[in-house]
């Protein structure tokens, strides 16, 4: 381990004080094995206590610290700085309104998630003990259950940037996750919601979501299956 000097450019926005966001550069020394989160902590604890950002678990499972670093959405806690060299450019997630500094307003993100009803919908009474699912049925849902709701995908999507009403990859992935779940009976309602001009049809298979996903979920593949399912349903 060695200390290195790095230059960190951060997009700052203090509500009530700043009219619009502006860049601030911090030249600091950190350990070369630091993560982006370590860098932010260093700045927050040693240089400027007014810097605001979200973090919690620091082990890439809570989904709090997604942000845009050198043009890519990443989780700050799991991303080592050597991936980007000695110059860092840190911004809040694109496409979301800024509350303060790196903290964005995720209310619309969770509202969209709620819209597709992210819970098991049952027509039949629930079984007494366990809900049996075969390995093949589980395979259908696949990695789509791994989502940690960090919003990195939705904030990376070029369809989301101009259109705040677009459901976005995260909500659509969640829709896939329940529509293709063998235990669930709510497919018809969800397909109705997803088959909307601001639903799955705004996905143009750009793959920015897949590149951004910290859990490496093949989102576009699942959304393609979802589209085919919706088409089959409406024919």
């Amino acid at each position: 381990m060695a200390m290195i000097d790095i230059s960190v450019k951060i997009l700052r926005y203090q509500p009530g004080k700043d009219e619009k966001p502006h860049w601030q550069v911090f030249n600091i020394a950190v350990e070369d094995e630091s993560t982006i989160l370590d860098v932010l902590n260093e700045i927050h604890w040693q240089h400027d206590g007014t810097l605001a950002y979200r973090r919690s678990c620091r082990s890439s499972i809570c989904g709090s610290c997604a942000m845009k670093v050198n043009g890519r959405n990443v989780l700050a806690c799991e991303t080592p700085i050597h991936r980007f060299g000695r110059k860092l450019k840190i911004e809040p997630l694109s496409g979301f309104d800024i509350i303060k500094d790196l903290v964005v307003d995720l209310d619309p993100f969770f509202a969209k998630l709620k819209r597709i009803r992210p819970y098991l919908i049952l027509d039949k009474p629930a079984p007494d003990k366990e809900f049996v699912q075969s390995p093949e049925q589980l395979e259908q849902i696949g990695e789509s259950t791994l989502c940690i709701l960090c919003a990195a995908c939705s904030a990376a999507c070029p369809s989301s940037w101009p259109n705040s009403e677009y459901l976005g990859p995260a909500a659509l992935l969640k829709a896939y996750r329940f529509i293709f779940d063998s235990r669930d009976d709510g497919a018809d309602q969800r397909i109705e919601i997803v088959n909307d001009k601001n639903g799955v049809w705004r996905c143009h298979t750009i793959f920015n979501c897949v590149e951004a996903c910290p859990k490496k979920i093949k989102i576009t593949e699942y959304l393609s299956r979802l589209k085919v399912k919706v088409v089959e349903n409406s024919l």
Binding site: A111, K112, K114, R115, R117, E165, E192, I193, N195, D196, K197, N198, G199, V200, W201, K227, V230, V231, N233, S234
Partner: peptide, 18 residues
């Protein structure tokens, strides 16, 4: 019923396929 639910316009599936 979810109060956030806002359906704008259905459609999309047929144009996509065509």
């Amino acid at each position: 019923m979810n109060k956030d639910f806002k359906q704008t316009s259905r459609s999309g599936s047929l144009p996509w396929l065509l």
